[in-house]
């Protein structure tokens, strides 16, 4: 469960400050939530806030239990590292057995041979599979998904969905997929952030009509390009 108390936040999005939360009090008990925002650019900072990657400008976000990184976000796959290096990093951070973690990914992924390749050479399909597959390894109490779910049409998507459903049973799930279908399938409630206030509603369909999840073009600023060089 996640608790927002007197949270005010206005992150910088696409070069300008935008209001995300203005003295928001919100109580999120264990459930499956779709994250919707009035301004599609604010979805990402809202995820950062709920995953506690960044403290708000004022107020507190508290969570009971461990929360995942934003699953599906290709964030931590940057620079010249192989898939094995990333698995090693996750295994060390979460105290997992490295050989077993590698074994699971090898079974799950469509082309496991890519694991030994540098991530800069990965095809887009493998990248997508990898970021979802690795999120199954550590057990979390709060799962946060920040990308469209893998398609159930192929072998990986089917197996991943079965395992993910079992993993998230009885846990909190927050998703910000840009695919409405995913949200209807995986969620039962909606968290709405709009013009500084936030609310939770049971009427997911209605909320989706009102705040359709629109994809935003990926942000590319000078600052991010510099970061590529830095690492």
């Amino acid at each position: 469960m996640i608790l927002l108390s007197r949270v005010s936040d206005s992150p910088r999005v696409a070069g300008s400050k935008r209001l995300l939360a203005d003295r928001v009090d919100l109580d999120l008990p264990v459930d499956r939530y779709a994250l919707l925002t009035g301004d599609p650019h604010l979805r990402r900072p809202a995820i950062d806030l709920l995953a506690r990657l960044r403290p708000p400008h004022a107020g507190h976000v508290t969570a009971v239990g461990s929360s995942s990184w934003p699953i599906g976000r290709p964030g931590f796959i940057r620079g010249k590292v192989t898939g094995r290096h990333i698995v090693a990093l996750v295994a060390r951070l979460y105290g997992l057995d490295m050989a077993l973690s590698n074994g699971i990914l090898e079974t799950l992924l469509t082309s496991p041979a890519q694991l030994d390749e540098l991530s800069t050479h990965w095809p887009i399909e493998f990248r997508r599979e990898f970021v979802f597959a690795i999120a199954l390894l550590p057990p979390f109490d709060i799962y946060i998904v920040d990308a469209p779910f893998p398609s159930p049409r192929d072998r990986f998507g089917q197996m991943w969905r079965v395992l993910f459903d079992e993993r998230t049973e009885g846990k909190t799930l927050i998703t910000s997929s840009t695919r409405g279908r995913d949200l209807v399938e995986f969620c039962s409630k909606a968290i709405i952030f709009d013009r500084g206030w936030a609310t939770v509603t049971d009427r997911l369909e209605e909320a989706l009509d009102q705040y359709p999840p629109v994809a935003t073009p990926p942000e590319r600023t000078d600052r991010q390009e510099e970061a590529d060089e830095e690492i």
Binding site: A91, L93, Y94, G95, L96, D97, M98, L100, S101, G103, I104, T107, L108, L136, L137, P139, M159, L163, E166, R167
Partner: peptide, 23 residues
């Protein structure tokens, strides 16, 4: 895979490599 994941879970399984809090 299900068995392997259950084994990997530091809370329920024995696949954990660290005895202390991992984080």
């Amino acid at each position: 895979l299900r068995q392997a994941l259950a084994f990997l879970d530091p809370r329920t399984g024995t696949g954990s490599t660290t005895s202390s809090s991992p984080s």
